[in-house]
């Protein structure tokens, strides 16, 4: 599988990353190289093999819905680039 300039444009959009045209040209070769490596998988017969999503076969545990942590809202809000009255500020999205 080779990665084209169009592919890069499409995936960069999905990933929400600006890619300059110079970057895009360098990426074409590098991403194609990585996809060629990945394509080695295609020669393997995996019919009937169960996909493995996890190292150990465990089920998700449940716990009681109880407050266990102290309130660190002020601390976490202070990490935001822009806030106002405990709200995160982003550019206007609704006219």
């Amino acid at each position: 599988m080779t990665i084209s300039q169009d592919d890069i444009k499409k995936i960069a959009h999905l990933a929400r990353i600006n890619i300059s045209s110079e970057e895009s040209i360098l990426l074409e070769e590098k991403l194609t190289g990585i996809m060629k490596l990945i394509d080695q998988m295609q020669k393997v017969d995996t019919d009937g093999v169960e996909p493995m999503s996890h190292a150990l076969d465990i089920s998700q545990p449940l716990r009681a819905d109880q407050v266990t942590e102290s309130d660190i809202r002020t601390k976490t809000m202070a990490l935001a680039p822009e806030t106002e009255e405990s709200l995160f500020i982003v550019p206007q999205v609704i006219e």
Partner: peptide
């Protein structure tokens, strides 16, 4: 991020992510 986005994007999931999980 771009490779990950590519292999998970519509139409490629079975060929890449699912295949990788089987191997």
């Amino acid at each position: 991020i771009l490779i990950g986005t590519y292999v998970l994007s519509a139409g490629y999931y079975d060929a890449y992510y699912l295949k990788a999980q089987k191997i």
